[in-house]
Design a protein around this nucleic acid. Structure first.
Lengths: 339, 339
DNA sequence: ATCGGTAACGATACCGGTATCGTTCTCTAT
DNA sequence: ATAGAGAACGATACCGGTATCGTTACCGAT
């Protein structure tokens, strides 16, 4: 094995320039205490050697890093993508850069203590503050700036941005009920996630309010994936008394419902009405009626709140509630009254 | 201002458990040299104090971090998203975690040396290896594992994964020519990017091959955004002798062409044929004929190559060429022969 | 000539971990 | 009884930067 060339450090620069590391560090950080001539020489050496500072080393000693952390279980999900778009926008407008930490998958074996590991991993070590998206972690909070988008827990001990999931679900149900639908199927999200439960609760309460008894066979488990939406919808449609409409806990599951309908030769909305939740970018193209919870905006606002926290400014609210809006497209139709 | 609670360090754990930091470190890294009883006590203290290790400190001393870095200019772009999906998949299958570094925007003021800064920022400091997506940076390479997806330069000094941009463009042009189109507009990508130039070259060569003289007025500058596609298309369609087909350097620009056509009351494909490049997820929904360059797959393969490099295994190829494929949808039609 | 002030720079502690080596203690073999 | 081996653990150097303080040289003022 060949000898590994070491990376060039501040020591190398100092030696080559004939000055001390202190002086190089001063130049790097734009301190005033350096003679113009010396500065130019050092800058020359730096670019000649191709020196770049070691983030880890710097982070350890200096408090301010101008870097925000983001923890996402899975960056491939449309949900995560939408939120990240907003975060990205806020980052672009700020002086902060962003470090995203992901495991690629929620379920993955890891080292000892991996459970806690991945949250405050960035915390106080690399970044000035951390954004957590749709995660249960960070139960144990340190006092560092942390903010959650759509937390698993309804009332986390740190600030958060949440959508009005319950109200959104009520809106969907009232919309469908007004169209004349009585038998409405519900494809659940992951039960451990608070927002999924809130939507289910909205589904149930709206039915109660309308005086319709809840048929448990119309409520099918799911996990927010397209595949689960597909399977659940098949199950619903093949039953003896299939629903006329399906409310999926998120858009991805609703997309699965589209697939199932197509496979069974059913047209949407003629033979089946479908509503989703999230308004991911695909929804527009397939004409899916859904609830916009302004995910991108949530990410944007959360980032701005985090920046405030980092700057030691006071937050206006601990929990920012983002109102949802029903987006009517072409996946639902009114039922003719039965003669 | 209240006194800042410090984060809990390995020193705190050691003191509380009545052992040395060395022993705690051994427990953290699962070394064998610890008595079972001691280990349990330490683990107890760790979870009681909510200790999590400082990534920065750890990275500095130990070579192996089981962490890969990814540098993207803008994570909001559909292009980046597609590539990241593949990376995410490879990460999920591996023991590595991923750290994504982004500035949120390509054009952003920064500290001194920011130009170099953001590439090998992660390099040898935090991560075992770095993926670079569609960036010109890293001209100065260190010898650390680096791999580029779709590099700006055709022949970078480090391994890369690239699409067959030239061949893909030829395929598009031959497809359009076979449909009978003679006046074909081209909406350029960002000229400093190699892949954009390769596509333009394919456009020109195909025309030459077909014996059609190149009309420079049909070649409009662009920058890969939807907006630029919109503007360029308007310009093309409003000219005296508008094209019958438009080949956009990427799908986002093609989407802009759709907008422009709609605004002018032109139907696609009846009044105008459009082809894109990339096959982003939106393309399917609008029926855009495009070139699939398997971006997700490129990310996947690049990640696997990087992991090989980190493990000191030999790469099969330095440049992995990913073949493109024309995806025919409904945005083009055959021209009737002129009578 | 002595002093104080300031500009420019160097020496060193320190951040929080890991790697290396040394120390202590027990147990077994001779 | 003593040496040697091995288990369990501690002490300390070190990673590559920044923060703090100290040092030197040069200046004008008293």
């Amino acid at each position: 094995m060949p000898t590994k060339k070491r990376t060039v450090t501040i020591q190398d620069v100092a030696k080559k320039a004939g000055v001390s590391v202190s002086t190089v560090s001063r130049v790097l950080n734009g301190k005033a205490d350096v003679a113009g001539e010396t500065q130019e020489k050092i800058l020359g050496v730096i670019s000649k050697l191709g020196y770049t500072s070691n983030l880890a080393a710097r982070s350890m000693r200096s408090r301010r890093k101008d870097l925000l952390g983001l923890v996402v279980p899975d960056i491939g999900f449309p949900y995560s993508i939408e939120v990240m778009k907003g975060i990205n926008r806020a980052i672009a407008e700020s002086k902060f850069d962003l470090l995203v930490y992901t495991m690629g998958d929620v379920h993955k074996s890891g080292a000892v203590l991996h459970e806690q590991h991945y949250v405050s991993l960035l915390n106080n070590s690399l970044t000035d503050g951390v954004l957590i998206v749709a995660s249960a972690a960070a139960e144990f909070i340190t006092d560092a700036p942390i903010i959650a988008v759509d937390p698993h827990i309804i009332n986390p001990r740190y600030p958060s941005v949440q959508g009005t999931n319950y109200q959104g679900a009520l809106d969907v149900m009232n919309y469908l009920l007004n169209l004349g639908h009585q038998r409405i199927g519900f494809v659940c999200g992951r039960p451990e996630i608070a927002s999924a439960e809130r939507r289910l609760q909205g589904y149930k309460d709206a039915l109660k309010e309308a005086g319709i008894t809840i048929d448990e066979s119309l409520i099918i488990p799911g996990d927010f994936t397209t595949k689960s939406g597909y399977i659940s919808t098949l199950q619903l449609l093949k039953s003896n008394n299939p629903p006329t409409a399906i409310f999926a806990a998120n858009d991805q599951a609703a997309l699965g419902a589209f697939q199932a309908a197509e496979e069974l030769g059913l047209r949407i909305p003629e033979d089946l009405s479908v509503v989703g939740f999230d308004n991911i970018s695909e929804a527009k193209f397939v004409g899916l009626t859904t609830v916009d919870q302004f995910l991108s905006e949530m990410g944007y606002i959360a980032t701005q709140m985090l920046i405030k926290m980092v700057n030691n400014e006071k937050l206006d609210v601990q929990v920012h509630k983002m109102p949802t809006r029903l987006v009517e497209r072409t996946s639902c139709r009114a039922l003719e009254p039965v003669h």
